[in-house]
Write a protein that binds this DNA or RNA. Structure first.
Lengths: 158, 158
DNA sequence: GGCAAAATCACCCGAAAGTATGAACGAAGT
DNA sequence: ACTTCGTTCATACTTTCGGGTGATTTTGCC
């Protein structure tokens, strides 16, 4: 979760505004209720209720969700291709493909044209071209077919 | 999560007790503070603070913890991808690729350009283009990348 | 708040790939 | 002899791909 500077303090700002409104409300209540005998008790009760609610709301807003990790065993069919895991890892690290580039690579290996990939990812054709260019550069290949071949050989792609 | 009847209402009971204690505290404060001029404001402020805290505490205790479930797929290694040999054979028969077309397909999957394949097979570029065209037609694909994908999927190519 | 990387998009140009069509040749089968 | 099929090659044309350059926006991080 990343928040821009405004959103980061949204809670605080909301709290401030809510507090201001409450003070007006309380002043009004003070003025209205002093005419009764049991005004003070009612007033205090109301304040207690309102601020209890405010506390609850605050807590709801501000508590961070607990992250629970669930490990699910999912059967994955693996080719019995003997691979030098270390060499693969080294080459993968050297390539350092970004998430988007990897995504493009995957669709590319599925046989999609740049145009089709662009439509699938909701971006322009030019963007895909840029991605593929950097991809080929990083992977040290000249064509998409070579990229696919290398990716399959390194098990980047099933 | 299963709770016994007592534990189930622990929060409520605690809240009740806390409330009782607070009332005593408030009565005491009321008695102590009425002698000052700004007693009411202080009193109200204290109540607001205390009940805000109470609300937060309540929310913490009573709300179910927000849980973000993160699913981690743990790969379970299984021998080999199960292939429907018959279906593959049927499709292969339907395609009925010639010797030369198969050869071109293999080099294609290695990432070679048409020009490179032509040089490798000692024929002209145009010849390779003809082969690839008929290949795509037979395989019912539009691009070489699709042909490669399909060929790998059907185990025509390692 | 500012920096660096990633992602986005555009334009141009040449290369490669793919489509369409036609044609020549030889081997295999009837 | 005739047909069929695979292979070969060519020309012309369209589409896609890939390289190069530059720019703006978004995002992650310190």
């Amino acid at each position: 979760m990343t928040l821009n500077p405004l959103a980061k303090h949204k809670g605080t700002i909301l709290y401030g505004v809510a507090l201001a409104l409450l003070i007006f409300l309380l002043k009004w209540l003070e003025w209205r209720l002093v005419i009764f005998d049991y005004a003070l008790e009612l007033y205090v009760g109301a304040i207690a209720l309102v601020f209890t609610g405010l506390g609850i709301w605050l807590a709801m807003k501000l508590t961070k969700p607990k992250v629970e990790t669930v490990v699910i065993e999912k059967p994955v069919y693996i080719e019995k291709r003997p691979v030098d895991a270390e060499a693969v890892a080294r080459e993968l690290a050297r390539m350092d493909l970004s998430r988007r580039e990897l995504e493009v690579l995957e669709w590319m290996a599925q046989g999609l044209s740049n145009q089709e990939i662009a439509e699938k990812l909701f971006v322009s054709l030019n963007t895909i071209k840029t991605h593929t260019s950097r991809l080929f550069e990083k992977m040290d290949v000249k064509r998409r077919t070579q990229a696919i071949e290398k990716a399959k050989r390194l098990n980047i792609i099933p």
